[in-house]
Design a protein around this nucleic acid. Structure first.
Length: 795
DNA sequence: CGTGTCACTTAGTAGCCATGTG
DNA sequence: CACATGGCTACTAAGTGACACG
């Protein structure tokens, strides 16, 4: 992680903002962590007790987890590299945040008690007080000094800070024997299905072509025409009628997932040493130990949390006597194991062609057998048909669970979902955990992973109908937003003036979501990395500057978002927003929620009222696609070469990636490859000069002598020169492109945010082959768009 | 209503592999 | 032909958001 992570934490370049050295974190960060511990575990106990009431099964596990929590609490973190400063700071902030949340909680509880008595009074009072929340209109007086907190303190419930988010997740609970859905669903094999219970709200798209779809593309003529391979790949599902609401398929048949290969014990000559002495480990302990050994070169092993988690989990796999001996990870010597693994992978690389061929074939075989399913009569590719192999959990950022052992998944853990009567056979000697026939979901198989306790799914590939249709629908909603966004913007701007704190917070958060394409920011548990989005921003994540770099009312954002990617941005905002932020931050500690009366549920409920189907993430899609469209319109010169057009496209794409903060680690080989490219350019330049010279000479000579041969030679040279120039141009374009791209990932936006029809239309309009924009997988994923968008399509 | 569960999308990266180059 | 290099795919973590339940 190390270097990569550091890279990530540098501000994104290119949008003109954010070049500063990180400052934002300094505010109040030196605060102390401490005491929170007690509160914390207290909380846990409560929770757990409650839970035990309902589900006593998990008792043991929970106890176990308790211990974890305690131990993990004290992070000693001794030697730390400078680079980690800000991270450290964050951690402190977090500790404090926990603490302050605890405090708030207590506060609130007390209040609640009182409330009973004072209810009537409070109610009356609140009406008044709400109105009294300060919000200076246009005047310039800073509001920072106003005190609203007093009043709001005792005001009624709905203007109270939301209750505090804490909830320490259920640690991997034992599976409860779920069945329900499958059962109350009277599924009949062939083509009966239950209408969904969900209400629908969907985007009705044009679905005229009902005629075409006499049974699933079974029309023989069609088949014959397509013949050959990918007949199914050209299944134009987008011309067919949609399933009725909530139903995802009518028939589904597959072979079940592929399990990870069994563990192969190390050969006897590969030794593990403890405290300098060789030691033969039991198979289980060896397997888990080898996970660690294989990561010895990785940055993870320098992290305390990682080591601690690993060691603790590892011990669970040891025999009694091993446990007794191995008590300190530091005394473990895995180097021999690592050497062995390295040698093995080297060996792998050096395999002969035949061996490789053989392997490839075998691979193809399993894909053929397990990589496809038949859904509604069509063969479709499965996205991930292999079950995740065991290993060490690699959480991103400061993940409290990094290093924990991810257990091997057995058939007994796996739930199969398919049509009745088509269940795949479990591997010999095993049974499935369950077979269900739920056609309201899209997954083929699922299991619960032990580290985070989340369900993992086997689903279809993105080229499939199931995924494609959803994707299409996503963009349709985004386009709808385009139509109403102006009104929505007016509304939230109006709301900045609202008397009600809650509404002002909501409107400011929405402004961020819209303007900056921030994510919604759901609440997170304490046992996940500490990252935020719009609704979960904390005071410590922004700083306000009346004046910065010649701009007024600048808000500096500096926080870790999804995947612990840093978001840094300096944004000039409207005065009203600025003032509101000042108020929101008043009397709060750095670790407190900026929008304490807001969460994503509230936000999304509001959004849904504004437009059916609207949620926070739609803004990201909309803004991304809209930006692309605008950028393409303005950057594309219809008279330029294809190369230049592609550069323009990439630039537009890049603008979106910057908007969405899609970063990547600078490729390790970047500097070198850049150098090489530069060299090439230089050589090319020289070549051009030479060519120019000899061209001139030839021309002169031709003029002088008038000989036809000389003329021809000159003409040839001219052509050559042109060619060279073109090559140079290409190289230069490539260089710029690469430089501008070094820490920006274009793929994510291309794949998830940009309506493919925009790109398709652009290609068609500008005579750019679609292959220049989309590779094979991408073309597969976007078949629908490629097929239906003409050059005139506009987002 | 708060909380947990479930399903599904979005995300970055490791490492494989095709490809071009010297 | 060996090798570097960049592109792509597979992988899986980490989000969002709907809904059920007590």
């Amino acid at each position: 992680m190390g270097s990569a992570e550091v890279d990530k934490h540098t501000p994104p370049s290119g949008d003109g903002a954010g070049k500063d050295v990180l400052t934002g974190l300094s505010n109040g960060m030196d605060r102390h962590k401490s005491k929170d511990k007690d509160h914390h575990s207290h909380k846990h106990k409560h929770k757990d007790k409650d839970r035990e009431k309902c589900k006593d099964k998990n008792r043991e596990k929970h106890k176990d987890k308790h211990k974890d929590k305690h131990k993990d609490k004290h992070k000693e973190k001794s030697k730390d590299k400078e680079k980690k400063h800000d991270k450290e700071d964050r951690k402190h902030g977090r500790e404090e945040r926990k603490q302050s949340k605890e405090d708030k909680k207590l506060d609130k509880e007390e209040k609640r008690k009182e409330k009973g008595k004072m209810k009537d009074k409070a109610e009356k009072a609140s009406c008044v007080e709400v109105k009294n929340e300060p919000m200076s209109e246009d005047d310039d007086t800073p509001l920072a000094s106003h005190s609203f907190s007093q009043t709001s303190q005792d005001s009624e419930d709905d203007d109270q800070p939301l209750s505090f988010r804490k909830k320490v997740k259920i640690e991997v609970k034992a599976e409860k024997p779920v069945k329900r859905k499958a059962e109350d669903m009277a599924v009949d094999d062939e083509d009966d299905y239950v209408a969904s219970k969900k209400k629908n709200k969907k985007v009705e798209e044009k679905k005229e072509k009902v005629d075409k779809k006499q049974t699933n593309g079974a029309s023989p003529t069609k088949r014959v025409k397509k013949e050959k391979k990918e007949e199914e790949e050209t299944w134009k599902w987008w011309e067919e009628e949609k399933h009725e609401d909530g139903v995802k398929w009518k028939s589904l048949e597959h072979k079940g997932p592929v399990f990870a290969a069994d563990y192969e014990p190390l050969p006897g000559n590969v030794k593990f040493k403890y405290n300098g002495k060789e030691m033969k480990l039991s198979t289980a302990a060896e397997e888990v130990g080898s996970f660690y050994a294989a990561m010895l070169d990785h940055d993870y092993v320098t992290k305390d949390v990682f080591n601690k988690n690993f060691f603790k989990d590892w011990r669970k796999f040891m025999t009694h006597s091993e446990k007794e001996i191995i008590t300190d990870l530091k005394k473990c010597d895995f180097t021999h194991m690592l050497t062995y693994f390295k040698a093995k992978s080297e060996e792998k690389k050096n395999r002969t062609k035949e061996e490789k061929q053989q392997l490839k074939l075998e691979n193809e075989e399993t894909v053929k057998e397990y990589g496809w399913c038949i859904i509604d009569g069509h063969k479709q590719r499965i996205g991930n048909f292999k079950i995740e192999p065991p290993g060490l959990f690699r959480g991103r950022g400061d993940h409290p669970k990094m290093g924990m052992v991810k257990r091997r998944v057995m058939p007994e853990d796996v739930i199969i979902n398919c049509s009745k009567g088509t269940a795949p056979k479990p591997p010999a000697g095993h049974k499935w955990k369950e077979v269900r026939h739920d056609n309201t979901v899209t997954w083929l198989a699922s299991w619960t992973e032990n580290v985070q306790g989340q369900v993992k799914y086997i689903m279809l590939n993105s080229a499939s109908r199931l995924k494609g249709e959803k994707d299409w629908q996503k963009y349709e909603i985004a386009r709808q937003l385009k139509d109403s966004v102006e009104k929505i913007r007016e509304t939230y701007k109006e709301d900045w003036k609202s008397k009600e704190m809650k509404i002002r917070q909501r409107s400011v958060a929405l402004y961020f979501i819209d303007k900056l394409a921030l994510r919604a920011g759901n609440e997170k548990d304490e046992d996940q990395a500490d990252t935020v989005g719009a609704c979960s921003l904390r005071v410590e994540h922004i700083s306000l500057h009346e004046q910065k770099n010649g701009k007024q009312c600048v808000v500096v954002f500096d926080f870790l978002g999804k995947d612990s990617i840093r978001y840094y941005n300096e944004v000039p905002v409207e005065k009203r927003v600025f003032k509101n932020l000042q108020i929101f931050m008043e009397n709060k500690k750095p670790g407190d929620d900026l929008f304490d009366r807001l969460n994503t549920t509230i936000m999304n409920k509001h959004l849904n009222d504004l437009m059916e189907g609207l949620t926070a993430k739609v803004f990201r899609t909309f803004n991304a696609s809209n930006t692309l469209q605008e950028q393409l319109d303005s950057l594309t010169d219809p008279n330029s070469s294809v190369t230049e057009k592609i550069l323009a496209y990439n630039r537009a794409n890049r603008a979106v990636a910057i908007l969405c903060n899609h970063q990547r680690a600078v490729p390790k080989t970047f500097a070198k490859s850049m150098e090489n490219l530069q060299k090439k350019i230089d050589t090319k330049r020289e070549a051009i000069q030479e060519a120019e010279q000899s061209y001139k000479d030839l021309k002169k000579e031709a003029k002088k002598t008038g000989s036809a041969a000389a003329k021809i030679a000159a003409g040839k040279k001219e052509k050559q020169l042109e060619k060279l120039k073109e090559q140079l141009m290409k190289l230069e374009v490539q260089a710029t492109d690469r430089e501008e791209n070094k820490e920006i990932a274009l793929g994510t936006s291309k794949l998830n945010y940009l309506d493919p029809r925009i790109s398709v239309a652009w290609c068609k309009k500008n005579g750019v082959p679609i292959e220049k924009i989309y590779n094979k997988t991408q073309r597969d994923k976007f078949q629908w768009a490629i097929d239906m968008a003409g050059p005139e399509f506009e987002f």
